[in-house]
Write a protein that binds this DNA or RNA. Structure first.
Lengths: 189, 189
DNA sequence: TTGACAAGTGGAGATGACCTCCACATCGAT
DNA sequence: ATCGATGTGGAGGTCATCTCCACTTGTCAA
C-alpha cells in the first residue's frame, strides 16, 4: 500500500515528536486556535520540517487517526490471543468506549478535521471491521455467540456511538448500546 | 431568539441571491475550491456585501442548513394537515430520503462545513425532532402506530442514515431502514 | 576515525486568501 | 423632491500558509 521508505533515525524522531504533540493538542481541543507554524515550534521543529512530514493539517490528522486505528486493532489481536473469545469481544467493545470517553477531545478534533476525508475514514473503518469480524467469528466458533448476526451489525452500533459523541449523557447511552449488543449476541437458550 | 430586524427590500434580495447561489454551489460540491471572494462575484454582489450578510463560510452554511430544516418542518406540517397520520409519517420519511438522495452534494458539503458546529446541528435536530414527534403522536392517536416507541427512536434512525451518506449503496440501505422503521412502528395485531 | 555524500532541517520571505473600511449608491418616509 | 438611514462594492492591509535553499546532521565505506 504505502511503500514506507526507511526514514533516517533523526527524521523518525522528529516525526514521532510531531505526532505525540499533535495527539496532545488534539485532545486538549486547542488545535484550531493554533497557527500551523506555531504548532511546529510547539513540537520543537522548524516550519519546513513540519511541512515535509505533514503537508496539511488534514495529513497530520490522518496520521494520528491511522495510529489510533492501528492501536485498536493491535489490542483486538492481543485480547483474542489471551482471553476466551466472548470475553475478548466484550473487553474490546468496553475498552473502546472507555478510550473514547477518556479522549473526547481527540475524538472530536479528528471527527472535525476528517469530515471531508470520508475515503480515509472508510479505510480505517474497514480495518476495524476486520478486527471485529475476527473477534465475532471466534466467539461464534466456540459457540458463545449466535451465528446469524454479522460483524456489520456491531460496526453499525459502534458507528452510531462514535457519531453521537456530543450527546449530554453519551457515556451512559454508549454503555447501554454495548450491553444491548452483547446481550443480543449471546446465544439464545 | 434571533430578533430578525426588518431588512430593506434590496438587501433581502441580495441575501436571497447569496443563499440561492450557495445552495447551487454546495450541491455541485465546488464550494471548497472556491475563494470566498469569488463566490461573492459569482452571486453578483461585492465582497463587502457577502461579508455583511455572512461573516464566514460557516455562517453561510448555517443559514442554508436552517432553510433546509425549516422547509422540512413545513413539509411535515403540510403532510400532517392533508393526509391520514400514518401516511403522513411514511410520506415524510420517504420524502426525506428522496431529498437527501437528490442533493447528496449539498448534504456532504453541509456535513463537512458544520463538523465543528455541533451546537447548531443539535438545534436543527431538535426542530426536526419536534416535527417527527408530532407526526408520530398523531399516528399513535388514531391507532395506526404503537404507542411504546418514541420519536427519539425514529430520530436515531434518521441520524444514522444521514451520517452514513457515503456508503456505496446508501440508497438501498436507507430505504431498508425506513421500511424497517415503518413496519416496526405498525401496531402489532 | 574521518571524509564525503545523502538526507534532513529551519526559518526568512513570497504568496495569496480573508476581511475591513469607507466613499458612494439606493431606499423609503415625509 | 428632499434627506436621513440603510446597504453596497471593491481597493488594499493583514496575516496564516507554504516554498525554497543554505546549512546541519546522519550514515557508511575505507
Amino acid at each position: 500500500m504505502t511503500a514506507d521508505k526507511p526514514l533516517r533515525a533523526d527524521a523518525r524522531r522528529k516525526r514521532e515528536a510531531l505526532l505525540a504533540k499533535a495527539r496532545e493538542v488534539f485532545d486538549a481541543g486547542d488545535f484550531f486556535d493554533l497557527r500551523f507554524d506555531d504548532f511546529a515550534r510547539l513540537a520543537g521543529v522548524g516550519t519546513g520540517t513540519l511541512y515535509r512530514h505533514f503537508p496539511t493539517r488534514e495529513a497530520l490528522a490522518e496520521a494520528v487517526y491511522h495510529g489510533e486505528v492501528a492501536a485498536l486493532c493491535d489490542r483486538a489481536r492481543q485480547l483474542q490471543a489471551t482471553l476466551p473469545a466472548a470475553e475478548a469481544l466484550a473487553s474490546f467493545l468496553r475498552g473502546m468506549v472507555d478510550h473514547m470517553d477518556a479522549h473526547k477531545g481527540l475524538a472530536r478534533t479528528l471527527a472535525t478535521l476528517m469530515a471531508g476525508r470520508s475515503g480515509v475514514l472508510a479505510e480505517g473503518g474497514r480495518a476495524l471491521e476486520q478486527a471485529v469480524t475476527d473477534l465475532v467469528a471466534a466467539a461464534v466458533r466456540d459457540g458463545t455467540v449466535r451465528n446469524d448476526v454479522g460483524a456489520g451489525t456491531v460496526m453499525m452500533a459502534l458507528h452510531g456511538i462514535g457519531a453521537a459523541h456530543d450527546r449530554p449523557d453519551w457515556r451512559a447511552e454508549a454503555d447501554g448500546v454495548i450491553t444491548l449488543v452483547l446481550d443480543g449476541l449471546r446465544r439464545p437458550l
